[in-house]
């Protein structure tokens, strides 16, 4: 494990080195081009600020209101019907909207149920295999100034729901 871990950790810094030298070998004026890129990056950051601000405020209001508890309560009977343990519902609803908040929730739930218990493993698996889709989508749509997201969100939600059911099922065997 430690070898994989080490490769993972060093990959970032090695990638930088490879990129720099591949530029140098191809006679690219590396520092000048780097500065051009940074300039573009600054413009990109500016272009995502509006949508990011909007999203973070909406998620903040939603979390503070206690609405999550109510949604979880409302979905309990359904989760029972489809065979999903109700303990994982809070994460299922929080995960797509906020990465930081769901990590905090995972830490709290893991210490409550035990990280190696069935519930603990389902929660960990869900956290590891899903993404903060609303955040990703907001940033990527904001960066190109697109307003109509067509079927991207429904397809992403379907993939997330599939991960929810798969976590519940796979953790029974592994």
């Amino acid at each position: 494990m430690s070898v994989i871990d080490y490769i993972g950790k060093s990959s970032l810094i090695i990638i930088i080195l490879i990129f720099l030298w591949s530029g140098f070998v191809k006679k690219v004026p590396v520092f000048d081009v780097f500065l051009e890129g940074v300039n573009k990056g600054l413009k990109t950051v500016l272009s995502i600020i509006p949508s990011l601000l909007g999203l973070i405020v909406a998620v903040g209001v939603f979390k503070a209101s206690g609405a999550l508890d109510i949604i979880v309560y409302a979905f309990k009977p359904i989760s029972y019907l489809v065979g999903i343990p109700s303990e994982i519902l809070p994460l299922a609803f929080l995960r797509p909207i906020s990465g930081g908040a769901s990590l905090a929730l995972v830490a709290e739930e893991l210490s409550r149920y035990g990280a190696d218990s069935y519930i603990g493993r389902v929660i960990s698996t869900m956290m590891g295999s899903t993404e903060t889709i609303f955040y990703t989508m907001t940033i990527y749509l904001g960066a190109v100034g697109i307003k109509k997201s067509r079927y991207a969100l429904p397809a992403a939600i379907i993939a997330t729901i599939a991960a929810l059911f798969a976590s519940v099922w796979v953790c029974k065997f592994i």
Binding site: S22, V28, F34, K40
Partner: peptide, 16 residues
């Protein structure tokens, strides 16, 4: 973010 877009610009110009 800006650091990476800078590095990426090099990667683009070099054909990586």
């Amino acid at each position: 973010m800006c650091f990476w877009t800078g590095i990426m610009e090099i990667a683009r110009k070099s054909g990586m």
